[in-house]
Simulated assay, not measured.
Amino acid sequence: MALELRYFFDPGSGICLWAHNDEARERFGYPVEHWTLPLSENTRRWLSYLIAWFDTSIDWSSPGDSDDRWSADEVGRFREASIRGAALVREELEGIGFLIIEERA
């Protein structure tokens, strides 16, 4: 059975991959640190960049406010970059026993 990982961003978590099935949770726990996966250095750095970028989407002095910090253009740019990140992860992991489930807001 494949190790199923969900791909989505959660501000402040430092994570964009999460275990989805029991096999993945047993191996990695629930949050999955992308630096521990058999990914290329460039993909790991791209994911770190995306995580840091996503963290700018909220106002850290008042995280619960619904005030959108990003313009529609920035939301679109991030979405495109995130799709590229998911494609990189899929390309590198799905052939070696992983299944990547991309979730978008």
Rank of each mutant, 00 (worst) to 15 (best):
V89E: 06
W18M: 01
A52T: 05
A72G: 12
F54A: 15
L37H: 08
I100W: 01
I83F: 02
C16H: 03
L99Q: 14
F8K: 12
D68R: 03
D22K: 12
R79T: 13
S66Q: 05
G29V: 03
P38D: 09
D68W: 01
G97T: 00
I51S: 13
A52E: 10
S61Y: 11
N21Q: 00
G95S: 13
M1S: 08
E94D: 09
R77A: 06
S61L: 14
I83C: 02
C16Q: 04
D59I: 13
F9T: 10
R90K: 12
R84P: 02
W35H: 13
F28C: 03
I51F: 07
G85W: 07
I15T: 10
S40C: 10
D65A: 11
E91W: 06
F9D: 09
E80W: 06
E41F: 08
W18N: 02
W53F: 10
F28G: 04
W70E: 14
R25Q: 03
L5V: 04
A24R: 01
R104W: 04
H20F: 02
S40H: 11
S61A: 15
V32G: 07
P31Y: 03
A2Y: 11
V89H: 07
R84A: 08
D73K: 12
D67E: 13
H20G: 06
V32Q: 04
G95N: 10
E102V: 07
F54W: 15
V75S: 09
D55F: 03
D55N: 11
E103P: 00
R27S: 00
P31E: 02
L3S: 01
A52L: 07
A24I: 01
L50A: 13
G14N: 04
R44C: 13
E102M: 01
W35E: 15
I51R: 09
W35D: 15
F28R: 02
D67H: 12
S13M: 06
F98H: 04
Y49T: 13
S62K: 10
I51W: 09
I51N: 13
R104Q: 02
A2D: 15
G97H: 00
S62F: 11
E41C: 08
A2I: 13
C16A: 06
W35V: 10
H20K: 02
F9G: 05
I58T: 12
V75R: 12
S82D: 09
R84L: 10
S62P: 05
G12R: 01
F54L: 14
D55M: 04
A105E: 11
S82I: 01
L99V: 15
S66M: 06
L3R: 05
L39Y: 06
I100N: 04
A52V: 04
E80H: 08
Y30A: 06
S61P: 09
E41S: 13
R79L: 14
E33I: 14
W53I: 03
G97V: 00
L5H: 01
S57L: 08
